[in-house]
Protein backbone atom coordinates (compact mmCIF):
# COMPACT_ATOMS: atom_id res chain seq x y z
CA UNK A 1 0.00 0.00 0.00
CA UNK A 2 2.76 2.43 0.96
CA UNK A 3 4.48 2.09 -2.40
CA UNK A 4 1.26 2.99 -4.11
CA UNK A 5 0.62 5.99 -1.91
CA UNK A 6 4.08 7.51 -2.37
CA UNK A 7 5.33 8.40 -5.79
CA UNK A 8 8.91 7.17 -6.37
CA UNK A 9 10.42 10.60 -6.95
CA UNK A 10 8.57 12.36 -4.16
CA UNK A 11 11.01 14.52 -2.20
CA UNK A 12 11.56 13.20 1.32
CA UNK A 13 10.03 9.87 0.44
CA UNK A 14 10.67 8.61 3.97
CA UNK A 15 7.95 10.74 5.50
CA UNK A 16 4.69 8.92 6.07
CA UNK A 17 1.48 9.55 4.24
CA UNK A 18 0.13 11.56 7.16
CA UNK A 19 3.06 13.95 7.19
CA UNK A 20 2.85 14.40 3.45
CA UNK A 21 -0.82 15.18 3.71
CA UNK A 22 -0.14 17.79 6.34
CA UNK A 23 2.47 19.60 4.29
CA UNK A 24 0.14 19.71 1.32
CA UNK A 25 -2.65 21.07 3.46
CA UNK A 26 -0.34 23.66 4.95
CA UNK A 27 0.77 24.73 1.52
CA UNK A 28 -2.81 24.98 0.26
CA UNK A 29 -3.79 28.56 1.08
CA UNK A 30 -0.35 29.84 0.08
CA UNK A 31 -0.70 28.10 -3.27
CA UNK A 32 -4.16 29.51 -3.77
CA UNK A 33 -2.87 32.99 -3.06
CA UNK A 34 -0.06 32.58 -5.58
CA UNK A 35 -2.46 31.25 -8.18
CA UNK A 36 -4.76 34.19 -7.56
CA UNK A 37 -1.89 36.63 -7.93
CA UNK A 38 -0.78 34.89 -11.10
CA UNK A 39 -4.21 35.02 -12.66
CA UNK A 40 -4.69 38.62 -11.60
CA UNK A 41 -1.37 39.58 -13.18
CA UNK A 42 -2.25 37.74 -16.39
CA UNK A 43 -5.66 39.37 -16.49
CA UNK A 44 -4.26 42.84 -15.89
CA UNK A 45 -1.70 42.35 -18.65
CA UNK A 46 -4.37 41.25 -21.11
CA UNK A 47 -6.63 44.13 -20.18
CA UNK A 48 -3.81 46.67 -20.46
CA UNK A 49 -2.68 45.41 -23.86
CA UNK A 50 -6.24 45.36 -25.13
CA UNK A 51 -7.08 48.85 -23.99
CA UNK A 52 -3.90 50.92 -24.31
CA UNK A 53 -4.11 51.65 -28.05
CA UNK A 54 -7.69 52.73 -27.60
CA UNK A 55 -6.95 54.84 -24.54
CA UNK A 56 -4.17 56.50 -26.49
CA UNK A 57 -6.66 57.66 -29.11
CA UNK A 58 -8.98 58.87 -26.34
CA UNK A 59 -6.08 60.81 -24.86
CA UNK A 60 -5.18 62.37 -28.22
CA UNK A 61 -8.79 63.33 -28.80
CA UNK A 62 -8.86 65.41 -25.63
CA UNK A 63 -5.54 67.15 -26.22
CA UNK A 64 -5.41 70.74 -27.42
CA UNK A 65 -3.74 71.11 -30.84
CA UNK A 66 -0.69 72.74 -29.27
CA UNK A 67 -0.01 69.89 -26.90
CA UNK A 68 -0.75 67.04 -29.28
CA UNK A 69 2.91 66.37 -29.95
CA UNK A 70 3.97 66.39 -26.30
CA UNK A 71 4.01 62.60 -26.19
CA UNK A 72 2.30 62.39 -22.80
CA UNK A 73 -0.07 59.50 -22.40
CA UNK A 74 -2.39 61.50 -20.17
CA UNK A 75 -3.31 64.98 -21.49
CA UNK A 76 -2.11 67.91 -19.38
CA UNK A 77 -4.89 70.16 -20.64
CA UNK A 78 -8.24 68.62 -21.46
CA UNK A 79 -10.34 70.12 -24.24
CA UNK A 80 -13.45 69.19 -26.17
CA UNK A 81 -12.36 71.31 -29.12
CA UNK A 82 -11.59 68.30 -31.33
CA UNK A 83 -15.09 66.91 -30.85
CA UNK A 84 -16.72 70.28 -31.49
CA UNK A 85 -14.56 70.56 -34.59
CA UNK A 86 -15.59 67.30 -36.21
CA UNK A 87 -19.28 67.79 -35.49
CA UNK A 88 -19.12 71.18 -37.21
CA UNK A 89 -17.78 69.51 -40.36
CA UNK A 90 -20.31 67.93 -42.70
CA UNK A 91 -17.43 65.70 -43.88
CA UNK A 92 -17.80 63.86 -40.57
CA UNK A 93 -21.49 64.26 -39.68
CA UNK A 94 -22.63 63.21 -43.12
CA UNK A 95 -20.23 60.24 -43.02
CA UNK A 96 -21.59 59.24 -39.62
CA UNK A 97 -25.10 59.30 -41.03
CA UNK A 98 -23.97 57.24 -44.03
CA UNK A 99 -22.20 54.73 -41.82
CA UNK A 100 -25.21 54.28 -39.57
CA UNK A 101 -27.73 54.10 -42.38
CA UNK A 102 -25.75 51.77 -44.60
CA UNK A 103 -24.74 49.46 -41.76
CA UNK A 104 -28.27 49.27 -40.34
CA UNK A 105 -29.95 48.59 -43.68
CA UNK A 106 -27.33 45.98 -44.59
CA UNK A 107 -27.76 44.34 -41.19
CA UNK A 108 -31.53 44.10 -41.43
CA UNK A 109 -31.37 42.70 -44.95
CA UNK A 110 -28.58 40.27 -44.09
CA UNK A 111 -30.50 38.92 -41.09
CA UNK A 112 -33.69 38.47 -43.11
CA UNK A 113 -32.06 36.84 -46.14
CA UNK A 114 -29.64 34.94 -43.91
CA UNK A 115 -32.46 33.58 -41.73
CA UNK A 116 -34.32 32.29 -44.74
CA UNK A 117 -31.29 30.53 -46.19
CA UNK A 118 -30.06 29.32 -42.80
CA UNK A 119 -33.44 27.84 -41.95
CA UNK A 120 -33.50 26.01 -45.27
CA UNK A 121 -29.97 24.72 -44.75
CA UNK A 122 -30.57 23.63 -41.18
CA UNK A 123 -33.97 22.06 -41.65
CA UNK A 124 -34.88 21.24 -45.20
CA UNK A 125 -33.57 18.66 -47.58
CA UNK A 126 -33.14 19.88 -51.12
CA UNK A 127 -30.72 19.29 -53.95
CA UNK A 128 -28.06 21.96 -54.22
CA UNK A 129 -27.76 22.43 -50.47
CA UNK A 130 -24.14 21.32 -50.38
CA UNK A 131 -23.29 23.54 -53.32
CA UNK A 132 -24.83 26.45 -51.46
CA UNK A 133 -22.81 25.72 -48.33
CA UNK A 134 -19.66 25.51 -50.44
CA UNK A 135 -20.52 28.75 -52.17
CA UNK A 136 -20.98 30.67 -48.94
CA UNK A 137 -17.70 29.29 -47.66
CA UNK A 138 -15.99 30.43 -50.83
CA UNK A 139 -17.40 33.93 -50.41
CA UNK A 140 -16.26 34.09 -46.80
CA UNK A 141 -12.69 33.65 -48.03
CA UNK A 142 -12.99 35.78 -51.15
CA UNK A 143 -10.33 38.46 -51.55
CA UNK A 144 -12.46 41.58 -51.62
CA UNK A 145 -9.86 43.54 -53.52
CA UNK A 146 -10.48 41.24 -56.49
CA UNK A 147 -13.96 42.69 -56.74
CA UNK A 148 -12.99 46.30 -56.41
CA UNK A 149 -12.01 46.82 -60.04
CA UNK A 150 -14.98 45.07 -61.64
CA UNK A 151 -17.48 46.58 -59.18
CA UNK A 152 -16.00 50.04 -59.64
CA UNK A 153 -16.54 49.75 -63.37
CA UNK A 154 -19.90 48.04 -63.14
CA UNK A 155 -21.35 50.43 -60.58
CA UNK A 156 -20.47 53.39 -62.75
CA UNK A 157 -22.11 51.78 -65.72
CA UNK A 158 -25.39 51.05 -63.96
CA UNK A 159 -25.33 54.30 -62.03
CA UNK A 160 -25.05 53.17 -58.44
CA UNK A 161 -21.46 54.32 -57.95
CA UNK A 162 -21.22 56.58 -54.90
CA UNK A 163 -24.68 55.68 -53.56
CA UNK A 164 -25.87 53.89 -50.42
CA UNK A 165 -27.16 50.97 -52.42
CA UNK A 166 -23.76 50.65 -54.09
CA UNK A 167 -22.23 49.90 -50.70
CA UNK A 168 -25.14 47.96 -49.23
CA UNK A 169 -24.97 45.31 -51.96
CA UNK A 170 -21.34 44.28 -51.43
CA UNK A 171 -21.77 44.51 -47.64
CA UNK A 172 -24.72 42.19 -47.91
CA UNK A 173 -22.75 39.75 -50.03
CA UNK A 174 -19.84 39.53 -47.66
CA UNK A 175 -21.91 39.44 -44.49
CA UNK A 176 -24.33 36.78 -45.74
CA UNK A 177 -21.90 33.88 -45.26
CA UNK A 178 -21.32 35.04 -41.69
CA UNK A 179 -25.07 35.44 -41.14
CA UNK A 180 -25.89 32.06 -42.66
CA UNK A 181 -23.29 30.18 -40.57
CA UNK A 182 -24.22 31.80 -37.34
CA UNK A 183 -27.95 31.47 -37.86
CA UNK A 184 -27.88 27.91 -39.11
CA UNK A 185 -25.92 26.94 -36.02
CA UNK A 186 -28.68 28.52 -33.93
CA UNK A 187 -31.46 26.91 -35.95
CA UNK A 188 -29.79 23.54 -35.62
CA UNK A 189 -29.84 23.89 -31.86
CA UNK A 190 -33.61 24.24 -31.79
CA UNK A 191 -34.86 20.67 -31.37
CA UNK A 192 -36.56 19.42 -34.47
CA UNK A 193 -39.17 17.76 -32.27
CA UNK A 194 -40.55 21.20 -31.39
CA UNK A 195 -41.42 21.84 -34.98
CA UNK A 196 -42.98 18.39 -35.33
CA UNK A 197 -44.93 18.99 -32.14
CA UNK A 198 -46.24 22.25 -33.56
CA UNK A 199 -47.29 20.49 -36.75
CA UNK A 200 -49.10 17.78 -34.81
CA UNK A 201 -50.67 20.51 -32.67
CA UNK A 202 -52.24 21.79 -35.86
CA UNK A 203 -49.88 24.59 -36.93
CA UNK A 204 -49.29 25.37 -40.59
CA UNK A 205 -45.59 25.61 -41.57
CA UNK A 206 -45.84 29.40 -41.38
CA UNK A 207 -47.45 29.29 -37.94
CA UNK A 208 -44.84 26.80 -36.75
CA UNK A 209 -42.08 29.15 -37.90
CA UNK A 210 -43.57 32.35 -36.55
CA UNK A 211 -44.89 31.08 -33.21
CA UNK A 212 -42.36 28.44 -32.26
CA UNK A 213 -39.13 28.74 -34.23
CA UNK A 214 -38.76 32.49 -34.59
CA UNK A 215 -39.16 33.28 -30.87
CA UNK A 216 -36.56 30.65 -30.06
CA UNK A 217 -34.18 31.86 -32.76
CA UNK A 218 -34.45 35.51 -31.69
CA UNK A 219 -31.23 35.45 -29.64
CA UNK A 220 -29.42 34.05 -32.64
CA UNK A 221 -30.78 36.79 -34.83
CA UNK A 222 -29.65 39.46 -32.38
CA UNK A 223 -26.19 37.93 -32.27
CA UNK A 224 -26.02 37.76 -36.04
CA UNK A 225 -27.19 41.33 -36.35
CA UNK A 226 -24.40 42.52 -34.06
CA UNK A 227 -21.72 40.60 -35.96
CA UNK A 228 -22.98 41.84 -39.31
CA UNK A 229 -23.21 45.42 -38.05
CA UNK A 230 -19.61 45.26 -36.81
CA UNK A 231 -18.54 43.90 -40.18
CA UNK A 232 -20.25 46.69 -42.15
CA UNK A 233 -19.17 49.37 -39.69
CA UNK A 234 -15.57 48.21 -40.09
CA UNK A 235 -15.34 48.22 -43.87
CA UNK A 236 -12.83 50.54 -45.46
CA UNK A 237 -11.87 49.08 -48.84
CA UNK A 238 -15.29 49.21 -50.48
CA UNK A 239 -16.02 52.57 -48.97
CA UNK A 240 -12.95 54.27 -50.41
CA UNK A 241 -13.29 52.45 -53.74
CA UNK A 242 -16.98 52.74 -54.47
CA UNK A 243 -17.64 56.27 -53.23
CA UNK A 244 -16.29 59.59 -54.36
CA UNK A 245 -18.21 62.22 -52.39
CA UNK A 246 -19.75 62.90 -49.01
CA UNK A 247 -23.08 61.55 -50.20
CA UNK A 248 -22.25 57.97 -49.34
CA UNK A 249 -18.73 57.91 -47.87
CA UNK A 250 -18.67 56.14 -44.51
CA UNK A 251 -16.67 57.24 -41.49
CA UNK A 252 -13.58 55.00 -41.88
CA UNK A 253 -13.09 56.35 -45.39
CA UNK A 254 -13.87 59.89 -44.30
CA UNK A 255 -11.28 59.70 -41.55
CA UNK A 256 -8.68 58.75 -44.12
CA UNK A 257 -9.63 61.89 -46.01
CA UNK A 258 -9.05 64.01 -42.91
CA UNK A 259 -5.38 63.31 -43.39
CA UNK A 260 -5.49 64.21 -47.03
CA UNK A 261 -6.84 67.65 -46.21
CA UNK A 262 -3.51 69.04 -45.22
CA UNK A 263 -0.20 67.39 -45.92
CA UNK A 264 1.80 69.10 -43.22
CA UNK A 265 -0.45 69.81 -40.27
CA UNK A 266 -2.15 66.50 -39.78
CA UNK A 267 -5.48 66.79 -38.00
CA UNK A 268 -4.49 64.19 -35.43
CA UNK A 269 -6.93 65.52 -32.85
CA UNK A 270 -9.87 65.37 -35.23
CA UNK A 271 -9.01 61.88 -36.39
CA UNK A 272 -8.69 60.70 -32.80
CA UNK A 273 -12.02 62.27 -31.86
CA UNK A 274 -13.77 60.73 -34.86
CA UNK A 275 -12.17 57.39 -34.07
CA UNK A 276 -13.44 57.54 -30.51
CA UNK A 277 -16.94 58.45 -31.68
CA UNK A 278 -17.25 55.48 -34.03
CA UNK A 279 -15.78 53.14 -31.46
CA UNK A 280 -18.43 53.97 -28.87
CA UNK A 281 -21.28 51.95 -30.43
CA UNK A 282 -19.02 48.92 -30.65
CA UNK A 283 -18.01 49.22 -27.01
CA UNK A 284 -21.68 49.45 -26.04
CA UNK A 285 -22.49 46.33 -28.04
CA UNK A 286 -19.58 44.48 -26.53
CA UNK A 287 -20.55 45.41 -22.99
CA UNK A 288 -24.20 44.54 -23.48
CA UNK A 289 -23.89 41.42 -25.58
CA UNK A 290 -20.53 39.91 -24.67
CA UNK A 291 -21.90 36.39 -24.30
CA UNK A 292 -23.91 36.56 -27.48
CA UNK A 293 -20.99 37.83 -29.54
CA UNK A 294 -18.69 35.09 -28.26
CA UNK A 295 -21.34 32.47 -28.94
CA UNK A 296 -21.93 33.81 -32.42
CA UNK A 297 -18.26 34.04 -33.35
CA UNK A 298 -17.56 30.50 -32.27
CA UNK A 299 -20.77 28.69 -33.21
CA UNK A 300 -20.23 28.48 -36.93
CA UNK A 301 -16.58 27.60 -36.67
CA UNK A 302 -16.59 24.76 -34.20
CA UNK A 303 -19.84 23.01 -34.81
CA UNK A 304 -18.67 21.52 -38.10
Amino acid sequence: MATIATTPDAPGGSSGAGAGGRTIRARGPQRDRNAMLGWTAANLLIIAVSLVPLLWLVSLSFKAPASITDGHFIPRHWTLENYRGIFRESLFTRALLNSLGIALISTVLAVILGSMAAYAIARLDFPGKRVLIGLTLLIAMFPQVSLVSPLFNLWRQIGIFDTWIGLIIPYLTFSLPLAIYTLSAFFREIPWDLEKAAQVDGATPAQAFLRVIAPLAAPGMVTTAILVFIFCWNDFLFSISLTSTESSRTVPAAIAFFTGASQFAQPIGSIAAAAVVITIPIIIFVLLFQRRIVAGLTSGAVKG
Binding site: L194, K196, A197, Q199, V200, A203, T204
Partner: peptide, 16 residues
Amino acid sequence: PKDRDIAMVFQSYALY
Protein backbone atom coordinates in the same frame (compact mmCIF):
# COMPACT_ATOMS: atom_id res chain seq x y z
CA PRO B 1 -50.36 16.37 -39.56
CA LYS B 2 -52.65 19.22 -38.54
CA ASP B 3 -55.54 17.72 -40.49
CA ARG B 4 -55.24 14.22 -39.02
CA ASP B 5 -56.51 15.05 -35.53
CA ILE B 6 -53.90 13.01 -33.72
CA ALA B 7 -51.81 13.97 -30.70
CA MET B 8 -48.23 12.95 -30.15
CA VAL B 9 -45.95 12.58 -27.15
CA PHE B 10 -42.28 12.88 -28.05
CA GLN B 11 -39.30 11.23 -26.44
CA SER B 12 -37.79 14.65 -25.81
CA TYR B 13 -41.27 15.88 -24.79
CA ALA B 14 -40.81 18.77 -27.26
CA LEU B 15 -42.31 21.30 -24.87
CA TYR B 16 -42.16 24.86 -26.19
